[in-house]
Amino acid sequence: MASRSEQFKTPALVRAAFVDGLFEVVTDDRGSKSWTCSLLIPKSDSLAAYEKAAVEAAAAEWGGNEKAIKMIKDKIIHSPFLDGDGPQGKSKKTGEPHAGFPGHWFLRVKSGEAYRPTLIDRKKLPITSRDQLYSGCYGYAVLHCFTWENKEKGKGLTFGLDMFQVAKDGDRLGGGGGVDVDKWAEEIPDEGAAPDSTKSGAGAGGLFG
């Protein structure tokens, strides 16, 4: 059975991409149905909070922090952090980078079919329209990390999406579980820069490099 970390809120704004999967269930090549999108994190931002959750989940599943960290560093566990400047950040059809992906790490976040993520606006009201949440807008997410294992790919980590709160608009990129809203969300002004404290991390060049 998969292990998972505690929920946490992204410490800085993330950018949503491929959000069609938050409005229509996606079926993968293994027949698994889920709600899904990608979250873009600038490479200048710290990934410490994400890495902490990843180690927590891996340690619970595979035998403690030290063993989990070694497995991660030895790449025995597939990393959930994908490089927007690498092959996974490019279109398989054209080879061109996906819009907005260069200069970012990205996470393919997902939630099982029975646990649609909570989607809310700046005032904590439910999002009902794709015009309110589109590929390219910015927000804060509530996530958890979970483990997985299968014969084809081995062991890995993925981030589950529990909530996304839109914080501000951005240029459209194209493409397209319950959570306690009052615990994680607050009303957000229309504009606001991320604090300097979120821009000092080494990113996935650290534990997951």
Rank of each mutant, 00 (worst) to 15 (best):
D171H: 08
F18T: 01
D85H: 14
W105Q: 05
D83H: 03
T128I: 11
P195D: 13
L133W: 01
G174T: 09
P102D: 10
A2D: 02
P87H: 04
Y115S: 09
K124D: 10
L107A: 02
Q88N: 15
G136K: 12
W62V: 05
P195V: 07
G21D: 02
K93R: 14
G136V: 11
M163L: 15
S5K: 08
Y134W: 13
Q88M: 14
P117T: 11
K168C: 13
K151G: 09
L173R: 06
G175E: 15
A185W: 02
S111Q: 10
T10A: 05
G64E: 10
S44N: 04
A48M: 02
K93T: 15
A60Y: 03
K33W: 12
K168R: 14
G201Y: 09
M71T: 07
G174E: 07
S32T: 12
I76H: 01
T198V: 13
F164L: 13
A193V: 13
A204H: 10
Q88C: 12
Y115E: 12
D180A: 08
A60P: 00
P195I: 08
T147S: 02
F146A: 02
I120D: 11
R15T: 15
E51S: 12
S79F: 08
R130P: 00
G31N: 07
H98A: 01
P42F: 05
N150W: 13
I188R: 10
S34A: 14
D196G: 07
D171T: 13
D182L: 14
S200C: 07
A12C: 06
S79T: 15
R130E: 03
D85G: 13
A57F: 05
P189N: 06
P102G: 06
E96L: 03
D180E: 04
L143R: 02
Y115P: 00
Y134K: 03
H78D: 15
R172C: 02
G31S: 04
F81K: 03
K183T: 15
S3Y: 06
E61A: 06
L143Q: 07
K70H: 12
E56H: 05
L119F: 11
I69A: 10
S44P: 00
F159W: 01
